[in-house]
Design a protein around this nucleic acid. Structure first.
Lengths: 193, 193
DNA sequence: ATTGATTTCGGACGGACGTCCGAATTATTC
DNA sequence: GAATAATTCGGACGTCCGTCCGAAATCAAT
């Protein structure tokens, strides 16, 4: 028998936490919810992760790794810079379409970071790493373009704005109706370049 | 005597709620916090706003009015379209610089909307109205530009992306350090056009 | 001044939460 | 197989929360 039930309780708890947060939001998830979802007794959560904060920190670590990995996979698919931008957009489109919970989770972790110094640093790191990745793969050509008045905008700033546009627009899409249609319109970011 | 203490308890509660949420986040604010901040007894909150949800709905209404008003004021200052874009960027820059709590509040309300159908509709409305405002003031010229492949992107989509870029980049700014510097770099959005 | 409605106040309620602890069970080592 | 460590379990604890209720106080109209 056994498909894959050979995973330990600590991982079951972690997966359950991810599932619960992406379903109900961190603000209204209790350790009991997570323990039940994991099929585990409440006190085991404290045994493995000390306390709620410890568990959530681990969730952030795991998810940050996941996002960066997927992002890099996607970005490395495109050949030209134009293609890589399309890949980046696709990355968000596919996430919104096939796994919106994952985007909700990313958003919710950002929300945690807004109010807790503990979560702020790893989230800042995640956004920074994402920006760096985009910059590395996409803005080789623009070493010093994009000048405006006396300022000249670095590739890192442009990358940050690109990421911001995708993230911010995705938020609006998730809030609205007609999501299918709205997700397609994300492609319009292409014509900002 | 009296500077302005002639405001009723209901407004005091509303202001206190706004202050508390923008300071600690809705997820960790209790009605007792709000009542204390307002200098009012706990049960008065229920008397005026029925329950927590009722109070928060009122907060959203007030804030949505406020944001849209300020946004329109700002947008109407610019003369050319290029100037209006600058005004829009300034709107976010000034908010982040002088009243970051207001942005935190906007973000937090968005976070509420993600998990509660009750708050979803008014927030969607706020983003829609903002987009409409931007479209109305800024994209008169682009009636059908921005084509890509077989698609042509409407002004409303471009407005939405502009708003998304400002919102998403602002989030990253709030999470990072060197905020003063980062806020200036928001101007780089100009060169996406 | 009396009545009735509105507002203010203090406190109690049941429930949900995170945390902690001791015992039971299982695994590991010699 | 006995001893020790690691894990699992069930339950209890104190706290904080949103809500509700009855009594006091204030206001309004006659």
């Amino acid at each position: 028998m056994s498909e894959n039930k050979e995973i330990g309780q600590s991982e079951r708890i972690l997966n359950a936490a991810i599932h619960c947060i992406s379903t109900k939001g961190y603000a209204s998830v209790s350790l009991r919810d997570i323990a039940d979802e994991a099929g585990v007794v409440l006190s085991q959560v404290n045994y493995y992760y000390k306390n709620k904060e410890g568990l959530f920190i681990e969730v952030i670590k795991v998810l940050a790794r996941h996002y960066l990995q997927e992002l890099e996979d996607k970005l490395s698919q495109g050949k030209s810079e134009k293609e890589k931008l399309a890949c980046l957009i696709e990355f968000f489109q596919e996430m919104l379409l096939e796994n919106p919970g994952l985007f909700k989770l990313l958003f919710d972790m950002t929300s945690m970071a807004f109010w807790s110094d503990t979560f702020k640093e790893p989230l800042r790191q995640l956004f920074d790493d994402s920006t760096t990745l985009i910059e590395k793969y996409m803005t080789k050509g623009y070493s010093q373009t994009g000048t405006m008045g006396n300022y000249s905008y670095s590739p890192s700033i442009l990358s940050r704005i690109t990421l911001g546009a995708l993230f911010g627009t995705s938020i609006q899409i998730m809030l609205g109706e007609n999501q299918k249609e709205a997700i397609e319109s994300l492609s319009a970011i292409k014509c900002l370049y």
